[in-house]
Nucleic acid binder design. Structure first.
Lengths: 191, 191
DNA sequence: GTCTATAATTTGATAGAC
DNA sequence: GTCTATCAAATTATAGAC
């Protein structure tokens, strides 16, 4: 079980198992490409039981994106922790994305949802947007520690650029079916 | 009509109109999120008539991605044309992606397909891979002209990084519903 | 080339038994 | 919480008339 799938809230164990399975499905197929029956089959229950835990697909998708963001931030920890070197923190940030890609070539959940965003139910779009707001704020905090002279605006712009590059690297790496593509790009994140 | 939708092959006008409509649908919903009836309705015919032009969804998707790649390359022109400044060519490359995003917040067709790549019919995946192979080769050629000392490997790595950043910028910009995000990232492509 | 009609399957969602 | 059963709608695709 990867960190993205850790139960960080007080969800029923079964609800969490449903989210685990759904997450992988969305990372592979996208929001429009999975069904309640796909989920049910993987969990070993019937689709009506999935609806018991998540009445609608929108609620399931929103819970999924929220959990993903929360688990990612929890894994990254405090960006202001003076015991941690900024470069090490940035390295762990890159490793989050690489870890997802390594895992059977999955796409970042919120990168996938971001691509589909124009046709997503509102609450799913809101939660996927929250992923980029929170992770870019985390990274901007680290960049301000590393580059002491930088402005808040510059740090935020650099953070967004790095996140965009990582998301795009996952897409290109997957499309070209070559994990080395991700590594070569990530090695030059700050060229 | 945007350049991506120009008829570059000898397709029947109706087939081309079907591709125009399908392209927008895929850029919004993804490959798994559109149907033959969606296409038919937009064109003003019945879904059976769409099947006449493109027997299967895989053939439709593959033709779509191929036309998109060909139209993009045709628009970009010869990367070795000495009458064109490398920086101008790079600017036109960035403008291609920005133009798509400006157009009602659409995603790059092959960026969308790249995200879905693991669950795409084979021929669709092949054609979306081709997009990244060809466009990165084009950009690497320009970069070698601009940075005279650069190795072929370095030029290729920089090209992939720039394309990844542009694809990711579209995702983040769309997810955050803010076109300025794309512009701020694109302004620092070569930081 | 486009149509009607239809096949066979899948979809999100609900009712009600246990 | 999970099940069976079911619904109404949508899905890809085909056959055959015009």
């Amino acid at each position: 079980m990867t960190f993205e799938q850790t139960n960080t809230q007080d969800l029923a164990p079964k609800a969490d198992e449903i989210l685990d399975v759904t997450q992988t499905l969305v990372q592979q197929h996208g929001y429009h490409g999975f069904s309640f029956r796909d989920v049910a089959k993987s969990v070993g229950i019937k689709s009506a039981s999935v609806h018991y835990h998540f009445p609608t697909k929108e609620l399931l998708g929103a819970a999924l994106a929220r959990r993903y963001t929360d688990a990612t931030l929890a894994h990254l920890g405090d960006p202001s922790d003076l015991n941690k070197d900024p470069d090490v923190l940035i390295g762990s940030f890159v490793a989050v994305f690489r870890g997802v890609l390594e895992n059977d070539g999955l796409m970042c959940l919120c990168g996938m949802l971001g691509a589909e965003t124009r046709t997503l139910p509102e609450q799913v779009a809101v939660e996927s947007r929250r992923f980029f707001e929170r992770t870019s704020a985390w990274l901007a905090t680290v960049l301000k520690r590393r580059d002491v002279g930088i402005s808040a605006q510059q740090a935020e712009a650099q953070a967004l650029r790095i996140i965009a590059t990582l998301e795009g690297s996952m897409i290109v790496s997957r499309a070209m079916n070559d994990l080395k593509v991700f590594d070569r790009i990530a090695a030059n994140l700050d060229p």
